[in-house]
Amino acid sequence: MPDLLPVPAIVLTHLEHWYGEDSLKRPVLRDLNLTVEAGKTTFLMGPSGCGKTTLLTLIGALRSVMAGSVVVLGQELKGASEAVMVQSRRRAGFVFQHHNLHRSLTVLQNVRMGLEVRGESGRADTRERCMEVLEAVGLAEHADKRQDQISGGQKQRAAVARALVGRPELLLADEPTAALDSKTGRDVMELMQRLAAERRMTVLMVTHDNRILDIADRIVEMEDGRILPSGQAHSGPNRISEKA
């Protein structure tokens, strides 16, 4: 019975993507197929230039789908209107490589933008909700500081708080620990994983960081615009030693 099967959060079928036109056309994704299960943490790995970030931006509705199908949380993004794209972005939380906090805003105001984008910032419990998330990422006492007054790890944690405050069903992250030292990176990752698990969120994360692979439920490897068959992909921490 189909009802009992796990619901996929992301379904990609025959996805193609390229940059440039005509003779300069450079394919980035070739006939890519992938299903990401809901409520699980999936890592996307692969050499640089293999199309990971392009894939993530397509799933995040930050780029238009050229060919093939991208269904995110039940919404087909191929040929989607600007309004649908904007709506899709609101259903996902984003954590970027750089924190991308707004420099004119305090930590609390930045987090609040995550609620404002969903039209939920006018409610009485707005501050409470923001503080709750800031508490969870350990930034409660820094709520009124600006981004230039806190450390790199704190900034990335503030960015995580901004992504999570609206309780999205899906969290997309692109090497969120790349700019952090290993200890701080690990802390941020564990924090994201814990909060995602508590909220039963689907997490799709691009990472190069071999030290944190044990956190993933599943690891998907990409190469040259394709997903490697799962037989060739190694899942779990045993892969680390091979690569290291």
Partner: peptide, 15 residues
């Protein structure tokens, strides 16, 4: 000056 911040706002779903 704020282009990257505006891009971020767009990315998280602001129109």
């Amino acid at each position: 000056d704020h282009l990257s911040e505006y891009a971020t706002f767009k990315a998280i779903g602001f129109s």
